[in-house]
Design a protein around this nucleic acid. Structure first.
Lengths: 195, 195
DNA sequence: TACACCCATTGCAGTTTCTGTCATCAGGAG
DNA sequence: CTCCTGATGACAGAAACTGCAATGGGTGTA
């Protein structure tokens, strides 16, 4: 028999999500979270560097998945295509976790402290993408712009996906967002020439 | 004669920037900052809600300036043009403060905690932009994308501006970034059709 | 069976961030 | 001269985080 209940980190995350939903992030102490998970405050900080980090456990794993996906894209693809394709490759991952993703997303939306952390995570993802694009021969500034524009598509697409009452796929929303981006940039380009 | 030295908040920001540069953010306590500014820790927290906020003092003011600039753009302009034009309108503001902006930018780049705060500030700026675009009749998703794409242009342009050894203007770099964005999106559009 | 070792968990003390509350006191308004 | 205002500070306390050392089942080894 095991000495301790398994999956301590998972239990902490679960407990944290429950408590944040019940009382809010600010009114939940780390001790509360640890107690509900049957652990102590000290153990919480053995697993997470931060109170915030408890909602961002698998993020390195996720970044790795996306980065690996990029490496599989032929180098001939346009940078923005490469980035968006990598995001599309996470479709199944999220589709399997839609309810969880919705809860988590609502929590983050409701708490500025968590938004901060979410944003750095996404930007570091974008930075990783830009890095790979550069490795693959894209110029530095084009790589940055493709990565950040791709991020805009991901953010808007993801937001729509979470809100979608018809439960259409992430890929569906990413493509819609991408078309929007094209339209928005195109319209500006023509407008700039005309005006 | 004044009872206290004037500009307490400015002195705190100045002291903080010095100390962060000397010892780093983590090794500087709020008490240190307050002491160097000739004040107490409690007074620091009367001015700033946060240790981090000390580097983001004028941000509401800045957002207001940009927002006001947007309102002056004719409604006929394309959303992305509107956003970028608003950023261009801050050219003089930054040009006058280039050395300060460089120092500040270096500090933020060196400290993840400060990057977090910077990102929320920029995203709230983008959200404000999206809001105005919607007021002006742009669809919700197009507004979000124009705002976020505009932000990408701002971020990349600003980064170049800070790094530029030739001291070219912010507007110069924003326009370059904007052309890059157009090229990147355009190339993807054509690539997607072909492939 | 006995022993040594491993390591997830914990206890504890200490620093730092941040909050709430109340006291102080110079200068302006009346 | 008094009252009020608003910037400042003193104090106490909660909560976040860190460093260090101890516990005590599990597991492998003799």
């Amino acid at each position: 028999m095991a000495r301790w209940e398994p999956n301590a980190s998972g239990r902490l995350t679960e407990a944290a999500m429950e408590l944040f939903a019940e009382r809010g992030y600010g009114k939940t102490t780390v001790e509360d979270i640890a107690a509900r998970a049957g652990l102590t405050e000290r153990t919480f900080f053995n697993y997470f560097t931060d109170k915030r980090e408890v909602l961002f456990a698998g993020s390195e794993h996720f970044v790795k998945q996306v980065v690996d996906a990029v490496r599989a894209v032929p180098k001939s693809s346009a940078p923005l295509d490469t980035v968006i394709w990598a995001y599309e490759s996470t479709n199944d991952f999220f589709e399997e976790r839609r309810p969880f993703a919705r809860k988590r997303s609502a929590l983050i939306a409701a708490h500025p402290e968590l938004q901060e952390r979410e944003l750095v995570k996404m930007m570091s993802l974008a930075a990783a993408m830009a890095e790979i694009l550069k490795e693959r021969g894209t110029s530095a500034s084009a790589a940055s712009l493709a990565a950040e524009a791709g991020l805009a598509v991901l953010r808007v697409g993801f937001e729509q996906w979470v809100k979608d009452t018809k439960d259409r796929s992430l890929v569906f929303h990413l493509r819609a967002a991408r078309r929007q981006l094209e339209a928005v940039v195109d319209r500006a380009k023509k407008g700039a020439r005309a005006g």
